[in-house]
Simulated scan of single mutants.
Amino acid sequence: MLKQAALIALLGFSASAMAGGWQAKVGASVLSPTGDSTLAPGLLVEADHEFGFTPSIEYFFGDTPISAELLLATPFNHDVLLNGSKVAKVKHLPPTITAKYNFKNSTRFTPYIGVGGTAFIAWDEEGVAKDVKNDYGFAGQIGFNFQPADAKNWGVYLDVRYADLSPEVTLDDATAQAVGKSKFDLNIDPVVYTIGYSYKF
């Protein structure tokens, strides 16, 4: 009897999951670093703001308020500034996945919050940065989707994400000798502001 009940529950969960829907999102984002690093006394290093194209795909689990979203952004290309002057360039991919809770209500606004993980996948580096390691961290998300009265499947959305990212940077030999260290953590810790278009299938 217990096995039968467990099987029925499992089948019910599977049916609910399969009854879910997909949503594609196409957005434009501003990635705003909030951290900085001290390379040596009097030498402050930080990454600059960057704009990017940020498509994502989201899956809704049946009639529940739960969904999962995967951010598939194009590469971000940061200038690295030393006391305000550009000394390096770092390109990276920021794949991010979040589990979201959608606050369904009687209005056309659907607020949501999400938590998950993110990655800094180093793509290329120039200048004093000889090598940049991949990094992984926590991600948080808050925002809302708005569906106009005449819209059946589409809407617009606005959200804000935070990522805890501090990739390790290896300096070129000349810079390493000048500052007395060969590596440091570039504290980016970005806040990402996004506005875009959503479409449910």
Rank of each mutant, 00 (worst) to 15 (best):
D185V: 07
V90I: 13
K104M: 12
Q147D: 04
G127C: 09
P55A: 15
K183A: 11
T74D: 13
G35W: 02
Y197K: 06
K104E: 13
N77H: 12
D164H: 14
K200P: 02
V160Y: 01
G12D: 06
V26E: 11
N105K: 02
L158R: 09
K91W: 14
K133D: 10
V26L: 09
K200R: 13
T38I: 02
Q141F: 00
A129P: 03
G180M: 04
G116P: 15
H78V: 15
T96Q: 08
V192I: 11
P111E: 06
F51A: 09
L11Q: 10
A119F: 08
S198G: 02
Y112I: 05
E125F: 05
G127D: 11
F120G: 02
A149C: 07
K183G: 09
S67R: 03
G42Q: 00
P55E: 12
W22S: 05
G116A: 13
E58R: 00
A88Q: 09
T98Q: 03
A178L: 14
Y136R: 07
A24L: 09
P190K: 00
I121Y: 12
T98F: 00
F53S: 12
L165T: 03
V191C: 14
Y157C: 12
D124Q: 14
E50F: 11
L44E: 08
A5P: 15
G27D: 08
N77I: 01
